[in-house]
Amino acid sequence: MFQRLPNASGERVSFTIDGRAAEALSGDSVAAALIANGVQTCRATPVSGAPRAPYCMMGVCFDCLVTIDDVGNQQGCLVRVRPGMRVETQNGKREIER
């Protein structure tokens, strides 16, 4: 659980998480925006189906993979949230191609 500092300033951005309306700040990455909205898991692992959430926030761990505007397996911590963006968590078995 994370919360925004009361005096954090910035422009509001409207986007959707799994079809639900959500709000973020303009400097947020998609992963930060999910965390700010109380989303606890981004994806399930392809191996055991275990839930995962962002771990490193800097592009290293790949635990933040989400589908953004219909493109799967995006590193949410490396993409900035944009107005109207459609973010979907990957709790099914879609896995990164390897």
Binding site: M1, F2, Q3, R4, L5, N7, A8, S9, G10, L25, G27, D28, S29, A32, I35, A36, A53, P54, Y55, C56, M57, M58, C77
Partner: peptide, 17 residues
Amino acid sequence: MGAGAAQILLKTSGLVA
């Protein structure tokens, strides 16, 4: 998560645990 990850959330988004 990493403490570094939490620090990135603080710097980029003003988010704290």
